[in-house]
């Protein structure tokens, strides 16, 4: 199986590759359009700032590549946020795959949400063998609002989209690569998708 991990100016892509290695799956970290298009699956990771990340994707033409992909694509954390329509972080238009907005948490509790939290009503292919009792690792100050593409929510300060899915595009706000064995289950579910 060929997995492409999108290389861009955001965050720790190595940890995603390490997680795949532990599952015995090879991957390549790349920003090469041909390699991305030819991969069976694409992972779009990211920890960082939305404005500068979108700018970088546009400069490299990766924004257009991403939205035109037909194979399963998995956005993680900032990756999920960039797949939404608009982010308050940097007040930037994003990829527009999910028709929802990314907003900053109101400062009524500790921000960022940093730590393990459970999902509410996780559903769909990404969450086979996952229940509301399972916790996942979240680190974020911005959240995607709940919308028709929401396939799991999480409650921190307010309910938000912990995961989104539309057609071949999948995304989670939490880090499956850092979420122990429950995270590995989500990664395995993604890797097993047949499309």
């Amino acid at each position: 199986m060929s997995i492409a991990i999108l290389k861009y100016n955001a965050g720790n892509v190595i940890s995603v590759q390490n997680a795949l290695n532990r599952l015995g799956v090879d991957s390549v970290i790349t920003d090469n359009e041909t390699e991305i298009r030819n991969a069976e699956k694409v992972i779009f990771p990211g920890v960082g700032e939305a404005g500068s990340a979108m700018k970088y994707l546009r400069e490299k033409g990766l924004d257009k590549v991403l939205i035109s992909l037909k194979q399963p694509v998995f956005g993680i954390c900032l990756g999920q946020q960039l797949m939404c329509a608009f982010s308050e972080e940097g007040a930037v238009n994003c990829l527009g795959i999910f028709k929802t907005l990314v907003k900053k948490f109101p400062p009524v509790d500790t921000v960022p949400q940093m730590g393990w939290n459970n999902l509410l009503n996780p559903r769909g292919e990404l969450f086979l063998n996952v229940t509301e009792r399972d916790d996942f690792y979240f680190v974020h100050s911005y959240y995607a609002e709940i919308c028709e593409n929401t396939v799991a929510t999480c409650d921190y300060i307010l309910p938000f989209s912990a995961a989104l899915q539309k057609d071949n595009f999948y995304a989670t706000q939490f880090h499956p690569e850092k979420s122990g064995s429950t995270g590995e289950q989500v990664l395995l579910n993604f890797l097993k998708l047949q499309k």
């Binding site: 390490n18 290695n21 690792y137 850092k178 979420s179 122990g180 995270g183 590995e184």
Partner: peptide, 8 residues
């Protein structure tokens, strides 16, 4: 360490 562990 990073290669071995699956938590932050």
């Amino acid at each position: 360490i990073a290669a071995e562990i699956n938590i932050p």
